[in-house]
Design a protein around this nucleic acid. Structure first.
Lengths: 133, 133
DNA sequence: CGCTAATACTTAGCATAGCTAACTTATAGT
DNA sequence: ACTATAAGTTAGCTATGCTAAGTATTAGCG
């Protein structure tokens, strides 16, 4: 439990630090997060994306409206099931997202410059463990 | 850089996992986050709280409106500078926040049950390192 | 085959949460 | 005192969350 609490606090602090970089993208947090899923997981239906993002379909529908207006994603009617909508990131969307993520990671790496090699090893190992959650 | 990226992803995943618990509190994320700062750092002015939460004063003013309406926090005019407003969490606010945080931590600890003692040691060490960021 | 039920998404309308601009009140600096 | 600065609030915009209800399509079944 103590470790869980410490990790929880650390995660909040970490994301609070990097969040400041996102303003530069000119895109809101929900749109950025949804776009990230589209870029890294590829084509998804709206319902699948809503589930992954832990929001209801109407919310995701509007988030996607924003992404489409900004030409960062595309809506395509699914061939197999014409009720469904297939979503993909555009090249522009991919570029914007990767640039934003790189800014975040660079900001974090800069803060980590004071760590020793052994400390980095520990952090690396911890990150891998957390991937199994 | 690779470690920074891995930690970044891990932090996002971790908070995504625990976020599901927050719906039970019946209070929005911005109010919960602001209340958390009030509980753990004690009395603050509105401007100080806005800076810590990385939002502008008008945004924080409205978040505090919500907390006050729900009787989770109090506004008190500051004695030394009557332009300023001192904010404190109420007993009810403290209780609600601590219950919510406990739910989050329990949910995370449950997911961590499969880890060995050595792995927990690694995570503990990593959390402490991240506290220095 | 055709009717009903279920599914995928959208629309409408509400609350919360972010911003800038402009206003009010109080303090500070000549 | 007079002006400038500082702290909060108010007003009004956009974005993001929800539920309820509507539309279109697919599935189930007699």
């Amino acid at each position: 439990m103590e470790t869980a609490e410490a990790l929880h606090s650390a995660a909040i602090r970490l994301l609070r630090l990097v969040r400041t970089e996102d303003a530069q993208s000119g895109v809101g947090p929900a749109q950025l997060s949804a776009l990230s899923v589209l870029v890294f997981r590829g084509e998804l239906t709206l319902g699948e994306l809503a589930a992954l993002e832990q929001v209801r379909p109407p919310t995701m529908s509007r988030i996607v409206d924003g992404l489409v207006q900004r030409k960062l994603a595309q809506r395509v009617s699914a061939a197999a099931d014409r009720r469904a909508v297939k979503l993909t990131a555009t090249a522009q969307g991919r570029t914007l997202l990767l640039a934003g993520k790189a800014r975040r990671v660079r900001a974090l790496a800069k803060r980590m410059a004071a760590f020793t090699k052994d400390e980095i090893k520990t952090l690396e190992a911890a990150a891998e463990l957390l991937g199994k959650l």
